[in-house]
């Protein structure tokens, strides 16, 4: 099982991350202390959570551009709920965040499934609508740190065994969705629907419904991340996580998720997100301008896609050799 999970693509990425860490530590040894690595992981957790959801969506030949807007809207709603009712327990806040995110994801899913609108159009539209709604409900005002209750802000920062709850939630999500993707019929349906929609249909899989569930999961994770984000940064406003959906897609692509659908793993999404997270955290430390970060992550995307294309080309050659062995 484990062997099947860690295909060469993931192994390659692990190698790249180790190399990256080695390079950074040669200039700044402090970067690879356990405490700092835990810090980097915690900082990357929102990206990991969203990348898992996005990976599932991309797997089904779709894309979800509305994740960051979903995150921002859910974050604003729970912030305003917290301001209105500071005594509400955190578990209720979590239920609201996941529930609202799920609902927003379902809206995307229904539009893709029932109206057969191309996913890029649907989520481009809902992205703008979600941001618009934030403005409407907040009047464009910020919810600031001093307005939020201490419990609301403390939850993601509480440390357990040296890692804040935020990081633990990311680890939990990785475990849960690894099981979902490899051990459930729904997980199998995601791969089948994206790998060959026609074959999936004839095998009794409802491709549209499968895509609906992918958007629903993506939405739920975005909603959860929405609360974690606003409480961690202790601020909520219209533009939080602006453009973050592109980081999320980038993490997936770097993690070996095929933009054509049907190929991708939770481990890949995790590693892609970590790769970007390490770059983001390391550049200021080793005294490189953060502006380089954009260029470097852009370069990483192109290298990743080129490597994937190369892998596919090699696959073509293998077919001929085996064809000869078989005959």
């Amino acid at each position: 099982m484990l062997k099947r999970l860690i295909t060469s693509r993931e192994a390659l990425l692990v190698g790249a991350i180790v190399l990256l860490l080695a390079l950074i530590s040669s200039r700044f040894p402090g970067f690879i202390t356990p405490a700092n690595l835990a810090n980097v992981f915690n900082d990357t957790s929102p990206l990991i959570l969203l990348a898992i959801g996005q990976m599932i969506v991309i797997l089904t030949k779709c894309i979800d551009l509305s994740v960051a807007a979903n995150l921002a809207l859910t974050g604003m709603v729970v912030s305003m709920v917290n301001v209105a009712a500071p005594g509400l327990p955190i578990i209720v806040i979590l239920v609201i965040a996941i529930g609202l995110g799920t609902l927003l994801g379902m809206i995307n899913g229904v539009l893709v499934w029932k109206l057969a609108i191309p996913p890029i159009v649907v989520t481009l539209g809902t992205m703008t609508i979600f941001r618009g709604i934030i403005f409407v409900i907040s009047d464009g005002k910020w919810v600031n740190s001093h307005e939020m209750s201490p419990a609301f802000k403390a939850f993601p920062r509480t440390e357990l065994l040296g890692l804040p709850v935020l990081g633990w939630i990311a680890i939990l999500a990785v475990i849960v969705f690894t099981i979902v993707m490899t051990r459930t019929t729904l997980g199998r349906a995601f791969y089948a629907a994206g790998g060959n929609p026609h074959a999936a249909t004839y095998a009794g899989i409802n491709v549209g419904k499968t895509q609906f569930w992918a958007f629903t999961i993506s939405g739920a994770l975005a909603g959860l991340t929405g609360y974690l984000w606003v409480s961690r940064f202790a601020v909520s406003y219209v533009d939080i996580a602006g453009g973050f959906e592109l980081d999320v897609v980038a993490a997936c692509v770097i993690g070996g998720v095929s933009i054509m659908g049907g190929i991708g793993t939770v481990a890949g999404a995790l590693l892609g997100a970590l790769f970007l997270g390490i770059i983001k955290n390391a550049l200021p430390v080793v005294d490189i301008s953060p502006f380089w970060q954009l260029a470097i992550s852009g370069g990483a995307i192109i290298v990743a896609v080129a490597l994937n294309a190369q892998a596919n080309r090699e696959k073509g050659r293998i077919i001929l050799k085996r064809a000869e062995q078989a005959s």
Partner: peptide
Amino acid sequence: VPEDRGKQGAILDL
């Protein structure tokens, strides 16, 4: 088993 077996066939990435 539909007419267009090229499309309905197997899922190559699985």
